[in-house]
Protein backbone atom coordinates (compact mmCIF):
# COMPACT_ATOMS: atom_id res chain seq x y z
CA UNK A 1 0.00 0.00 0.00
CA UNK A 2 2.77 2.41 0.93
CA UNK A 3 4.53 1.54 -2.29
CA UNK A 4 1.43 2.20 -4.35
CA UNK A 5 1.05 5.53 -2.63
CA UNK A 6 4.63 6.43 -3.44
CA UNK A 7 4.11 5.59 -7.13
CA UNK A 8 0.97 7.67 -7.30
CA UNK A 9 2.56 10.52 -5.43
CA UNK A 10 5.60 10.67 -7.71
CA UNK A 11 3.61 10.85 -10.92
CA UNK A 12 1.21 13.35 -9.39
CA UNK A 13 4.03 15.55 -8.14
CA UNK A 14 5.73 15.54 -11.55
CA UNK A 15 2.50 16.38 -13.37
CA UNK A 16 1.49 19.07 -10.91
CA UNK A 17 4.83 20.88 -11.06
CA UNK A 18 5.01 20.60 -14.84
CA UNK A 19 1.41 21.77 -15.27
CA UNK A 20 1.91 24.68 -12.90
CA UNK A 21 5.06 25.92 -14.59
CA UNK A 22 3.56 25.56 -18.05
CA UNK A 23 0.47 27.55 -17.17
CA UNK A 24 2.73 30.35 -15.97
CA UNK A 25 4.68 30.23 -19.23
CA UNK A 26 1.48 30.23 -21.23
CA UNK A 27 0.21 33.29 -19.40
CA UNK A 28 3.52 35.06 -20.03
CA UNK A 29 3.66 34.30 -23.75
CA UNK A 30 -0.06 34.65 -24.47
CA UNK A 31 0.00 38.25 -25.59
CA UNK A 32 3.06 37.81 -27.81
CA UNK A 33 1.57 34.75 -29.46
CA UNK A 34 -1.62 36.66 -30.19
CA UNK A 35 0.37 39.43 -31.85
CA UNK A 36 2.30 36.92 -33.92
CA UNK A 37 -0.87 35.17 -35.06
CA UNK A 38 -2.28 38.53 -36.00
CA UNK A 39 0.83 39.27 -38.02
CA UNK A 40 1.27 35.94 -39.77
CA UNK A 41 -2.21 34.41 -40.08
CA UNK A 42 -4.91 37.00 -39.81
CA UNK A 43 -2.84 39.86 -41.17
CA UNK A 44 -2.32 38.56 -44.71
CA UNK A 45 -5.95 37.38 -44.89
CA UNK A 46 -7.30 40.74 -43.78
CA UNK A 47 -5.03 42.59 -46.20
CA UNK A 48 -6.12 40.35 -49.04
CA UNK A 49 -9.77 41.16 -48.38
CA UNK A 50 -9.28 44.85 -47.68
CA UNK A 51 -7.09 45.62 -50.66
CA UNK A 52 -7.21 49.32 -51.41
CA UNK A 53 -8.55 50.52 -48.07
CA UNK A 54 -7.24 53.79 -46.71
CA UNK A 55 -6.50 52.75 -43.11
CA UNK A 56 -4.69 49.91 -41.36
CA UNK A 57 -7.41 47.38 -40.60
CA UNK A 58 -5.11 45.43 -38.29
CA UNK A 59 -4.84 48.44 -36.04
CA UNK A 60 -8.45 49.52 -36.32
CA UNK A 61 -10.12 46.52 -34.87
CA UNK A 62 -13.13 46.16 -32.65
CA UNK A 63 -13.24 43.68 -29.83
CA UNK A 64 -16.77 42.66 -29.00
CA UNK A 65 -17.44 40.47 -26.04
CA UNK A 66 -20.05 37.80 -26.46
CA UNK A 67 -20.51 35.86 -23.26
CA UNK A 68 -17.05 34.61 -22.42
CA UNK A 69 -15.70 34.87 -25.93
CA UNK A 70 -14.15 37.92 -27.41
CA UNK A 71 -14.64 38.42 -31.14
CA UNK A 72 -12.42 40.58 -33.25
CA UNK A 73 -13.65 42.64 -36.15
CA UNK A 74 -11.18 44.31 -38.46
CA UNK A 75 -12.51 47.52 -39.90
CA UNK A 76 -11.57 48.77 -43.34
CA UNK A 77 -12.21 52.29 -44.55
CA UNK A 78 -13.19 52.79 -48.16
CA UNK A 79 -14.00 56.24 -49.54
CA UNK A 80 -13.20 57.65 -46.10
CA UNK A 81 -15.89 55.69 -44.30
CA UNK A 82 -15.60 52.46 -42.29
CA UNK A 83 -17.63 50.34 -44.68
CA UNK A 84 -16.17 46.86 -44.40
CA UNK A 85 -15.68 44.56 -41.44
CA UNK A 86 -13.69 41.35 -41.62
CA UNK A 87 -13.89 38.60 -39.04
CA UNK A 88 -12.94 34.97 -38.66
CA UNK A 89 -15.26 31.97 -38.56
CA UNK A 90 -14.48 28.28 -38.51
CA UNK A 91 -15.63 25.18 -40.33
CA UNK A 92 -14.57 21.57 -40.24
CA UNK A 93 -12.51 20.31 -43.14
CA UNK A 94 -10.76 17.08 -44.02
CA UNK A 95 -7.75 17.62 -41.77
CA UNK A 96 -9.35 19.64 -38.97
CA UNK A 97 -10.46 23.18 -38.35
CA UNK A 98 -10.49 25.63 -41.25
CA UNK A 99 -10.40 29.30 -40.37
CA UNK A 100 -11.99 31.62 -42.90
CA UNK A 101 -11.71 35.39 -42.77
CA UNK A 102 -14.88 36.92 -44.19
CA UNK A 103 -15.13 40.53 -45.25
CA UNK A 104 -18.63 42.02 -45.28
CA UNK A 105 -19.85 45.39 -46.53
CA UNK A 106 -21.99 46.59 -43.63
CA UNK A 107 -24.15 48.87 -45.71
CA UNK A 108 -25.22 46.25 -48.21
CA UNK A 109 -24.67 43.06 -46.18
CA UNK A 110 -22.69 41.70 -49.10
CA UNK A 111 -19.47 39.70 -49.00
CA UNK A 112 -16.44 41.66 -50.16
CA UNK A 113 -14.10 38.70 -50.13
CA UNK A 114 -12.98 35.67 -48.16
CA UNK A 115 -9.54 34.29 -47.31
CA UNK A 116 -8.43 31.14 -45.52
CA UNK A 117 -6.33 31.69 -42.40
CA UNK A 118 -5.60 28.41 -40.59
CA UNK A 119 -6.09 24.98 -42.04
CA UNK A 120 -4.51 21.54 -42.07
CA UNK A 121 -5.85 20.32 -45.41
CA UNK A 122 -3.98 18.07 -47.82
CA UNK A 123 -1.36 19.95 -49.87
CA UNK A 124 -2.35 20.05 -53.54
CA UNK A 125 -6.00 19.21 -52.83
CA UNK A 126 -7.79 20.87 -49.93
CA UNK A 127 -4.97 23.31 -49.35
CA UNK A 128 -5.94 24.90 -52.66
CA UNK A 129 -8.82 26.58 -50.83
CA UNK A 130 -6.24 29.03 -49.56
CA UNK A 131 -4.73 29.82 -52.94
CA UNK A 132 -7.28 29.18 -55.68
CA UNK A 133 -8.66 32.50 -56.77
CA UNK A 134 -11.59 30.99 -58.65
CA UNK A 135 -12.89 29.27 -55.56
CA UNK A 136 -12.48 32.19 -53.19
CA UNK A 137 -13.60 34.72 -55.77
CA UNK A 138 -17.03 33.19 -56.28
CA UNK A 139 -18.13 34.40 -52.83
CA UNK A 140 -17.49 38.02 -53.72
CA UNK A 141 -20.73 39.95 -54.04
CA UNK A 142 -22.85 37.20 -52.52
CA UNK A 143 -25.38 38.18 -49.90
CA UNK A 144 -24.18 37.21 -46.41
CA UNK A 145 -27.75 36.21 -45.50
CA UNK A 146 -28.03 33.51 -48.12
CA UNK A 147 -27.41 29.86 -47.35
CA UNK A 148 -24.02 28.49 -48.30
CA UNK A 149 -24.20 25.04 -49.84
CA UNK A 150 -22.34 23.21 -52.54
CA UNK A 151 -24.01 22.86 -55.94
CA UNK A 152 -24.24 19.11 -55.43
CA UNK A 153 -26.33 19.76 -52.35
CA UNK A 154 -28.64 22.21 -54.04
CA UNK A 155 -26.73 25.39 -53.24
CA UNK A 156 -24.76 27.73 -55.46
CA UNK A 157 -21.16 27.16 -54.37
CA UNK A 158 -18.72 25.52 -56.79
CA UNK A 159 -16.56 22.99 -54.95
CA UNK A 160 -12.82 22.62 -55.59
CA UNK A 161 -12.45 19.47 -57.63
CA UNK A 162 -10.95 16.72 -55.52
CA UNK A 163 -11.62 18.61 -52.30
CA UNK A 164 -15.34 18.33 -51.58
CA UNK A 165 -14.88 18.00 -47.83
CA UNK A 166 -12.72 21.11 -47.68
CA UNK A 167 -15.21 23.06 -49.79
CA UNK A 168 -17.97 21.96 -47.44
CA UNK A 169 -15.84 23.11 -44.52
CA UNK A 170 -15.52 26.55 -46.06
CA UNK A 171 -19.32 26.67 -46.53
CA UNK A 172 -19.71 25.67 -42.91
CA UNK A 173 -17.44 28.53 -41.86
CA UNK A 174 -19.51 30.94 -43.95
CA UNK A 175 -22.69 29.72 -42.30
CA UNK A 176 -21.09 30.40 -38.94
CA UNK A 177 -19.95 33.80 -40.17
CA UNK A 178 -23.51 34.59 -41.22
CA UNK A 179 -24.88 33.74 -37.79
CA UNK A 180 -22.13 35.65 -36.06
CA UNK A 181 -22.71 38.70 -38.24
CA UNK A 182 -26.47 38.68 -37.74
CA UNK A 183 -26.08 38.34 -33.99
CA UNK A 184 -23.48 41.03 -33.57
CA UNK A 185 -24.36 43.52 -36.28
CA UNK A 186 -26.08 45.96 -33.88
CA UNK A 187 -23.01 45.87 -31.65
CA UNK A 188 -20.68 46.44 -34.59
CA UNK A 189 -22.67 49.42 -35.80
CA UNK A 190 -22.71 50.87 -32.30
CA UNK A 191 -18.94 50.61 -31.98
CA UNK A 192 -18.02 51.61 -35.49
CA UNK A 193 -18.16 55.30 -34.66
CA UNK A 194 -15.09 54.95 -32.49
CA UNK A 195 -12.84 53.83 -35.31
Amino acid sequence: MARLFKLLFTVMAFSAVAGGLLSVLEAVTKERIETQQLLFLKGPAVQEIMEGCSNDPLKDRLKIKEGKEERQFFVGKFDGKPNVVAFEAYGKGYGGKIGVMVGVDINKDKIVGIAVTTHSETPGLGARAKTEKGFKGQFKGKDINQSFKLKTEGGDVDAISGATVTSKGVCMALEEAKNLYMRLKPEILKNLGRV
Binding site: L25, E26, R32, Q36, Q37
Partner: peptide, 11 residues
Protein backbone atom coordinates in the same frame (compact mmCIF):
# COMPACT_ATOMS: atom_id res chain seq x y z
CA UNK B 1 7.87 25.07 -23.73
CA UNK B 2 9.39 24.81 -27.22
CA UNK B 3 5.98 25.09 -28.85
CA UNK B 4 5.01 28.21 -26.93
CA UNK B 5 8.40 29.84 -27.48
CA UNK B 6 8.32 29.12 -31.19
CA UNK B 7 4.83 30.55 -31.47
CA UNK B 8 5.90 33.64 -29.59
CA UNK B 9 9.21 34.33 -31.33
CA UNK B 10 9.56 32.40 -34.60
CA UNK B 11 6.02 32.03 -35.85
Amino acid sequence: VVELMMQAYTY
